Simulated assay, not measured.
Amino acid sequence: MTSGITRRAFEAGLVDVHLWNPRDFADGNYRRVDDRPFGGGPGMVMLAEPLARCLRTIQAARADAVPAPVVLFSPLGSTLTHAAVEVWSASAGAVLVCGRYEGIDQRFIDRFVTHQVSLGDFVLSGGEVAALALLDAVARLQPGVLNDAGSHQFDSFNPALDGLLDCPHYTRPETWEEHKVPEALLSGHHLQIERWRRDQRLQITAQRRPDLLQAARAAGRLNRADEALLKSLPPT
């Protein structure tokens, strides 16, 4: 978070992160934050009490009178989407709980967690990587962070692209290892360029994420030219 695009968000105070260690709120010389699970089984489970003490201290330290949402990164959570990132980017912040070991005592989750978030159908060693992913996605949507204010409008999944995947991009030279840049992008004809990009978005989305294409069609985001292009594509 101290380099690249996200650095601008933090230096401008648009995004701020405070780190809290649950071990600082644990008892005993060893500051244990985990124990064996009731009922047996592999792994260790994070204790509810140190997490609760830590969370209460965090909420008390916040300037907002209303407690912040508590986000737990978990395979049980809703998959993180662009729409969700946009909501979080406009929010007043949240407490991000990064689990470890086999999991967290369910009583803490039931008592305090307001949102559970997953990056996808796989398991990480801890929630830190997921937290960094969310922070990066949120930071780049803050005003003034990207050099071109409209850059994020052309990201995959963005409503500005009707929720479709983005098109391929090319830069100089015009020919690289006998592969040329598509003629449409060299034409200087803005409508032709935009139609090419639109066709590429439709084709790639149809091939790789037909669910996104179905959602765009159901929302009435596809026009006649779009449908004509899709009908011309070979069956997948």
Rank of each mutant, 00 (worst) to 15 (best):
D16L: 10
D27S: 15
A26L: 03
Y30G: 01
H18K: 09
G28L: 01
L14N: 07
A9R: 02
D16I: 06
Y30Q: 12
R31C: 04
N29L: 12
I5A: 02
R7Y: 04
G4P: 13
R8Q: 08
N21F: 00
F25W: 07
A9F: 13
Y30W: 13
N21G: 02
P22T: 00
A9T: 08
R23P: 03
A26D: 10
N29M: 09
R23I: 02
H18F: 06
E11Q: 15
R8D: 04
V15P: 01
F10T: 04
R7K: 15
W20Q: 11
A12I: 02
D27C: 08
W20P: 01
R7V: 12
D16H: 11
S3K: 12
R31P: 02
P22S: 00
S3W: 08
R23T: 08
R32P: 07
A12D: 12
R32G: 03
R8Y: 07
G13R: 10
N29R: 13
G13A: 12
R32E: 10
R32C: 02
D27I: 05
F10C: 07
L19F: 12
D16R: 13
D16N: 09
D24A: 13
A9W: 05
V17T: 05
R8V: 14
I5T: 09
N29E: 13
R7T: 09
N29Q: 10
V15A: 03
I5Q: 00
R31A: 13
F10K: 01
V15L: 11
W20G: 08
D24N: 10
G28I: 03
F25Q: 04
D24R: 12
V17C: 07
H18Q: 11
T6Q: 05
V17I: 09
A12K: 07
R23H: 09
L19P: 06
V15G: 01
N29H: 11
A12C: 02
